[in-house]
Design a protein around this nucleic acid. Structure first.
Length: 831
DNA sequence: GGCTACAGCATTTTT
DNA sequence: TGCTGTAGCC
C-alpha cells in the first residue's frame, strides 16, 4: 500500500468547520487563533501539525508545540500519533518547562550547568530559600520565605538577574542579596528551579547567536497552546525561537485568562498580533460542547468585561435545558441539596464522573465532602498533594538524588536524619557553618566535624556512598528497590503505625519508575536528538533552509529599534518587537553558523555516551511531572474541584456552588476592576464546562474559618440573562425571606423540566436557628437583611455596642462591607 | 533529639 | 474550623 499524501490530507481535513479549516490550512506565517471554549482548539492544533507534515510542507523535526501542562502535551501527542503514520519523536512537543529541560540537557555545558543537574519543585525551592535566609542571618518575620521565593520567581519571570533588580531601600537590597545567595547556592548544588529552566534557555538563546540561528532555522513552525496564559518570560522565550521564517501559530482565549495572579499576561495576545504582524485573526466561535442556554449565559456574562478581543460562542445544538438556580439557607443545606440532586442525576443515567461540583476556593469542598461521604456517594477531590510531592516519596527521591549528585544539599538535609540516626539540629548547624566557611557542599564538609555528631554524619555519608556503589549498573527498578531498603525507609514505615499507605506509595514509586522506563522510553524529554539529524525526511518535504538574516537585521526588520541599555537590561518591557539584544556575547564557544560544531555542544557522557543516566532522567521526570493526584482507579465518582482546575475539562452536568459576594467574586479581587474581570472570566470558564445541564447555587450563610458568614448572592446573577435561567428554589425560600421562616422542604424543583421531579427522599430538616441571640433594642439581628438608601440591600454581619454606640457591620455585596452607626444610618429591615 | 501543645492563619496553581 | 510551624518540655 502506498502512502498518498493528497488523500491523507483530505481525510484529515474532513469534518472541520470553515473556521477550523481556515486555521489549519493557514499559510506559514504568524497566526493568532481566538479559540472559544469547546470550539475544538486541540483538534485544530494537532490537525495543523499533521496537515503540514502530510502535505510535505514540514519535516517532523521542524515542529515545536508548546503547552502548559503535561496533560495537554500528552493529549496532543496521542492525537497526533493517531493522525500520522510516523512516530512523533523528533518533534518538540511538550510543556515550556519540559522543552527547556530537553534543551538544557543537550546544551548543559553551554548553559553552565552540571550534566546531571536536577530540578527543584516548589517545596524544594522554598526550603532552599529558607536555608539562604538562615545563612544570611535574616529575620524570617521580615523576610518571609514564601514571599522571598515568590519575589525571586517574579524577578526571573521578568528576566532580571540580581544585578538587574532595582533596589529602593534596605529591605529590597537584602531581598536582592537573598536572590543572589540563592542563585549561588543553586549553582553550587547543581540544581535549577522552574523559572530558572525558562530563564537559562532564554539567556542562552539571546547571547549565543549561532545557537539561536540554528534553532530559529530548525523550527519552521512553532505552535503555542493556551497563549493567554503565557507570562513575559515565556513570550520573550518564544520570540527567541521564532526566526524571521518561523510561523508561530498561537492559540488562545482571552476570555479564559484566569492566571494573572501567577504572572500570565493576557496582553501577550494583543502584543503578538501587533509584533508579529498577524494579518488575520481567526475566531473559532462555534461551540461543540454546550446547549444554547448555557452559552447564552456565558456570552451575556462575559460581555460585561471591558477588556476583550471580542468573541461570541454559538451552537447549533438548540437551547437545551434552562440554567437552574438554587438558593439555600446554609452551606450545609446546599450540600444536602447537591447530594440529592446528584444522586437523582445518577439514577437517571448520568455517570457520576460526568457530574462536576465546582467551587471558587478549596475550603468549600469540606462541607460537600462530608455530605457526600455521609450519603455514601463516591466522589473524587482534585487538587492537593500529588504523588511525587508526598513526604515518603520525596524522601525516597532525595536518597536517589544524593546518589546521582551528593552535593544536593536540599536532598541531603531532607534525609540526613530520616529515618532518625542521631543527627540533630545542633550537629547540622555546625555542618552548615563548616560548609559555608569552605564554600563546599554539606556532603563534602562532613569530614570537618568530629565527635558523636560527626561520626553519625560520616555513617550517613558512608551509607549513601555504599548505595551508590551497590546500585552501579543496576536497572532503574533495582536501584530504587535497593535504595528503599538500604536507606531504612522500608523498615521505618513497616513499624510506623500509619506506614501502610506510605509503603504502598513507595511501591507505587517503583511501579512509576518501571512505567517510565518501559512505556515512555526513559528520558524521552531528556535525550536530545543530535541536532542536525533531521533532514526533510521520508515525506520529501520541501521545507528547505531559508536564507538567514543576521539576528541584528532581524530585530531591525521587525521595525522596532533596539532600546539602549537600561537600568534593567535583558527585559521584555521594551516597546515590543523581537527585542533580543542579539549582539550580546554571541556564542564564543560555538563557531558561527557551523551546525556540525553545534552538534558537538550536545554533550554526551564521556564514558557511556548516554546523554543522561536512567536515574537522572527519572528524577527529572519526577520534578517536571508531579504525577496525578491519587487516581482512585476505576471508581465512578463525582468530581469535585476548583474552577481553576476545571479549565480544559467538560462534564454533562456542572454545579457551580458558593455563588456569593465575597466568595465568587472573591473579596480579594472584587475591589479592583482588573480583579473583577478576572473573576468574571473565572465564572465564564465555570459555565462553559457544562455540556447539558448547569446548576448555579448559593447559600445565605456559610461557615468559613470557623465563623458563620452572612452572604449576599453573587453579582454575577445580575449579569446573566433571565431568559436562560430557572429558579428552582421554592419562592418563599428565596433570598430576603429571612431565616425565621421554616425551611421549605418540598423539593418542588423544576416542574416542567420533567426529569427531576421528586426524589422520594425524606424532606430536608428545617434549618437550625441561625441566630440565637435575642434581639436588642434596635430590633436588628445579625444575619438579617436590611436596606440602606445609599448602599442598597445588605446583610448584617455583626452587631456591637448598645444605645447610641450601637454599630453594625453590614455586607452590601458589591458596595462592600461597612461599619455603620445605627444612630446615624437608616437601616430598614427587609422582609 | 524527639515529641506534644498552642498560636496564627486561611483565594486561585502548573511546572 | 482545621492545618502548619514553632516553642518548649521530657
Amino acid at each position: 500500500m502506498t502512502f498518498d499524501p493528497q488523500a491523507a490530507s483530505s481525510s484529515l481535513l474532513q469534518n472541520l468547520n470553515p473556521e477550523q479549516l481556515a486555521a489549519v490550512t493557514l499559510p506559514p506565517k504568524p497566526a493568532l487563533i481566538l479559540a472559544g471554549a469547546g470550539s475544538g482548539k486541540t483538534r485544530v492544533l494537532t490537525t495543523r501539525i499533521a496537515w503540514l507534515i502530510q502535505t510535505g510542507q514540514l519535516y517532523p523535526g521542524g515542529v515545536m508545540a508548546v503547552t502548559f501542562t503535561n496533560k495537554a502535551a500528552k493529549e496532543m501527542l496521542t492525537r497526533l500519533g493517531a493522525m500520522l503514520p510516523i512516530p512523533v519523536r523528533g518533534m518538540w512537543i511538550g510543556t515550556f518547562h519540559g522543552l527547556c529541560n530537553r534543551f538544557l540537557r543537550a546544551h548543559w555545558k553551554l548553559a553552565g550547568l552540571p550534566q546531571g543537574f536536577q530540578i527543584l519543585d516548589s517545596s524544594d525551592q522554598l526550603s532552599a530559600v529558607k536555608r539562604v535566609i538562615k545563612a544570611m542571618n535574616l529575620d524570617e518575620e521580615r523576610y518571609v520565605p514564601k514571599q522571598v521565593t515568590w519575589f525571586i520567581a517574579a524577578q526571573k519571570e521578568e528576566g532580571r538577574r540580581p544585578p538587574d533588580v532595582e533596589v529602593r531601600d534596605e529591605q529590597s537590597r537584602l531581598m536582592v542579596q537573598v536572590y543572589a545567595g540563592y542563585e549561588a547556592q543553586c549553582q553550587r548544588e547543581g540544581v535549577v528551579d522552574f523559572a530558572e529552566l525558562m530563564l537559562r534557555v532564554y539567556e542562552l538563546m539571546r547571547d549565543n547567536a549561532s545557537l539561536r540561528e540554528h534553532y530559529q532555522r530548525r523550527f519552521r513552525h512553532i505552535l503555542v497552546d493556551e497563549f493567554q496564559d503565557t507570562n513575559r518570560l515565556q513570550y520573550a522565550w518564544l520570540k527567541m525561537f521564532a526566526g524571521p521564517e518561523t510561523a508561530v501559530f498561537a492559540v488562545g482565549d482571552d476570555d479564559q485568562s484566569i492566571y494573572a495572579f501567577r504572572g500570565a499576561q493576557v496582553g501577550n495576545m494583543a502584543a503578538f498580533e501587533r509584533e508579529f504582524h498577524v494579518e488575520q485573526v481567526i475566531k473559532l466561535e462555534r461551540n461543540y460542547r454546550s446547549f444554547g442556554n448555557i452559552l447564552d449565559a456565558a456570552n451575556e456574562l462575559i460581555s460585561r468585561n471591558q477588556k476583550r478581543l471580542g468573541k461570541n460562542l454559538r451552537t447549533e445544538a438548540g437551547p437545551g435545558e434552562p440554567v437552574r438556580v438554587h438558593e439555600s439557607p446554609t452551606d450545609y443545606a446546599e450540600a444536602q441539596w447537591f447530594v440529592d440532586e446528584a444522586r437523582q442525576l445518577h439514577r437517571e443515567g448520568t455517570p457520576r464522573s460526568d457530574i462536576a461540583l465546582l467551587y471558587r476556593s478549596n475550603a468549600q469542598s469540606r462541607v460537600m465532602e462530608s455530605a457526600l461521604f455521609n450519603a455514601g456517594v463516591p466522589y473524587k477531590v482534585y487538587g492537593g498533594l500529588r504523588f511525587f510531592e508526598r513526604a515518603e516519596v520525596k524522601h525516597a527521591l532525595s536518597y536517589l538524588r544524593l546518589i546521582e549528585n551528593p552535593n544536593d544539599d536540599t536532598s541531603f538535609l531532607r534525609v540526613v536524619n530520616f529515618p532518625a540516626r542521631g543527627i540533630g539540629s545542633r550537629t547540622l548547624e555546625q555542618l552548615q557553618d563548616a560548609a559555608r566557611a569552605s564554600g563546599r557542599s554539606l556532603y563534602q564538609s562532613v569530614g570537618a566535624l568530629s565527635g558523636k555528631g560527626g561520626n553519625n554524619l560520616q555513617a550517613f555519608v558512608a551509607k549513601v556512598d555504599a548505595m551508590r556503589e551497590a546500585t552501579r549498573g543496576l536497572t532503574l527498578r533495582e536501584i530504587i528497590v535497593h535504595v528503599l531498603e538500604a536507606s531504612g525507609l522500608v523498615d521505618f514505615y513497616k513499624t510506623d503505625k500509619e506506614g501502610r499507605e506510605r509503603l504502598e506509595n513507595l511501591e507505587e514509586l517503583v511501579n512509576a519508575a518501571e512505567a517510565f522506563v518501559t512505556q515512555e522510553g526513559f528520558g524521552k524529554d531528556a535525550v536530545a536528538l543530535p541536532i542536525d539529524e533531521h533532514g526533510p525526511g521520508v515525506f520529501g518535504g520541501t521545507a528547505g533552509r531559508a536564507e538567514f538574516n543576521t539576528p541584528g537585521a532581524e530585530a531591525v526588520e521587525d521595525g522596532s529599534s533596539i532600546e539602549p541599555a537600561r537600568a534593567r537590561p535583558g527585559l521584555f518591557d521594551g516597546a515590543g518587537g523581537r527585542s533580543a539584544p542579539a549582539h550580546q556575547g554571541a556564542g564564543a564557544a560555538v563557531p558561527d553558523g557551523a551546525a556540525a560544531a553545534l552538534a558537538a555542544t550536545v554533550t554526551p557522557d564521556a564514558e557511556t555516551g548516554e546523554i543522561m543516566s536512567p536515574l537522572a532522567a527519572f528524577l527529572t521526570h519526577a520534578s517536571l511531572e508531579a504525577g496525578d493526584n491519587q487516581a482512585q482507579a476505576g471508581q465512578d465518582a463525582i468530581q469535585l474541584m476548583t474552577v481553576h482546575s476545571a479549565k480544559g475539562l467538560e462534564f454533562d452536568c456542572v454545579f457551580i456552588t458558593g455563588l456569593e459576594e465575597g466568595l465568587f467574586p472573591h473579596e480579594n479581587s472584587a475591589s479592583d476592576p482588573e480583579g473583577l474581570e478576572e473573576e468574571r472570566r473565572l465564572m465564564y470558564v465555570a459555565i462553559t464546562r457544562a455540556r447539558k445541564r448547569l446548576y448555579l447555587s448559593f447559600s445565605q450563610t456559610r461557615m468559613l474559618h470557623g465563623q458563620t458568614r452572612y452572604n449576599v448572592k453573587s453579582r454575577f446573577f445580575d449579569e446573566l440573562p433571565e431568559s436562560a435561567l430557572r429558579w428552582i428554589t421554592p419562592k418563599n425560600q428565596g433570598f430576603g425571606s429571612g431565616y425565621s421562616r421554616e425551611y421549605q422542604a418540598a423539593w418542588s424543583r423544576g416542574s416542567g423540566l420533567g426529569s427531576i421531579v421528586g426524589t422520594g427522599r425524606e424532606p430536608a430538616p428545617p434549618p437550625k436557628p441561625l441566630v440565637s441571640a435575642k434581639p436588642p433594642a434596635h430590633g436588628l439581628r445579625s444575619g438579617q437583611s436590611v436596606f440602606h438608601t445609599k448602599f442598597g440591600e445588605g446583610v448584617i454581619l455583626t452587631l456591637e455596642g448598645a444605645g447610641d454606640d450601637a454599630r453594625a457591620q453590614v455586607n452590601f455585596g458589591r458596595h462592600g462591607t461597612k461599619w455603620l452607626a445605627l444612630g446615624v444610618a437608616k437601616l430598614t429591615p427587609v422582609e
